[in-house]
């Protein structure tokens, strides 16, 4: 029974990778050059932003939570990076640590609210999204402040766009995150504790897992990943803009779920979620290559998620 369950989870991950490959093949048919090395790396570069957010989302979903504060933590991170660095390389390190610290703080507050104040994760992270949104809008005067027009430091822009062995640096970072997160989740005590909490928090507690601290830490990690994605996105686009974080909430959840992670927690891997991010981005790229209007993309996007879920996201009969 154990082996069967394991192979089913592995199948889900394989299905997510299969979907990504299939989409690239379809793309190559409808749009010559779609599957060229250049095109694939640029699509994966866009996928890496979703993938990084999905890493944090994956952590909290594995313990049966959810992080709805992604959009504005990401957006505030991009704003904070540009306004704190003023586009100067000399201030880049200071701005990056400040931004990651902000993400960690927001995530920490989420965790504390969920664990010690007993607020449901949906409500707590939703409220945090509003709190950060209000602060970001208010403090920047609705992006009218003098520093708001600053660009991301050239060093960060170069780090995102620059290539090493022909592959963009942001992709290398994502690859490193995939390796580290997968290692931490499957081979460390901390990873085991995460799955244990997701399966049964009470049993995990009785088995000696420090449930509260682990959960708070995971929410803080999610905040850090959102902030990291915000930094890279600011470097990628050059500037921060209002609303840039909005698509990443649904995309990160969809990526995690398509990747075979159970929304109830306790099951799934980040390897799968990363594949989910890649296939989602590939899907959008294919639809764009087909000159599909926005409404069509929106509909097909939803239908594809439903089809994938019906294929392998179903629960056991009650």
């Amino acid at each position: 029974m154990k082996r069967l369950a394991l192979s089913r989870d592995a199948l889900r991950v394989l299905a997510a990778y299969g979907a990504a490959v299939l989409l690239f093949v379809i793309g190559a048919f409808v749009h010559p050059g779609f599957a060229s090395f250049q095109s694939v790396t640029s699509i994966l570069l866009v996928a890496s932003f979703v993938g990084l957010v999905a890493a944090g989302q994956c952590f909290v979903i594995l313990i049966g939570g959810i992080d709805l504060s992604v959009p504005w933590v990401l957006n505030a991170a991009a704003i904070l990076l540009t306004t704190a660095s003023l586009g100067q390389d000399g201030r880049a390190l200071y701005a990056v640590s400040l931004t990651l610290g902000m993400g960690a703080l927001a995530g920490l507050a989420n965790g504390i609210g969920v664990v010690w104040l007993g607020v449901p994760a949906v409500v707590m992270t939703l409220a945090m999204n509003g709190i950060i949104e209000g602060l970001a809008l208010g403090l920047s005067g609705g992006m009218t402040c003098a520093a708001c027009a600053s660009y991301a430091p050239p060093a960060i822009a170069a780090a995102v766009h620059g290539t090493w062995l022909g592959i963009p640096a942001a992709l290398w970072l994502w690859l490193a995150v995939i390796v580290v997160v997968s290692f931490v989740l499957s081979l460390t005590r901390f990873g085991r504790a995460t799955y244990a909490i997701g399966n049964n928090p009470r049993a995990a507690f009785l088995a000696g897992v420090n449930v509260s601290v682990t959960v708070v830490f995971l929410y803080a990690l999610s905040g850090v990943f959102s902030a990291l994605a915000g930094i890279l996105l600011a470097g990628f686009g050059g500037q921060a803009s209002l609303g840039m974080g909005t698509p990443y909430l649904f995309q990160s959840i969809a990526a995690v779920v398509i990747g075979g992670v159970s929304i109830l927690g306790g099951r799934g891997t980040y390897l799968g979620a990363a594949a989910g991010a890649a296939s989602l981005t590939a899907l959008v790229s294919v639809l764009l290559a087909l000159n599909m209007p926005e409404y069509g993309r929106s509909i097909i996007y939803g239908v594809v998620i439903l089809v994938l879920l019906l294929l392998y996201g179903r629960e056991q009969r009650e």
Binding site: F250, I253, A254, I263, E294, I300, G302, L310
Partner: peptide, 17 residues
């Protein structure tokens, strides 16, 4: 037998479209 949160997330996208 799908989770409500992911089902309605997907249908949200469809209805918006």
């Amino acid at each position: 037998r799908l989770q409500p949160i992911v089902v309605t997330l997907a249908t949200l996208s469809i209805f918006q479209g």
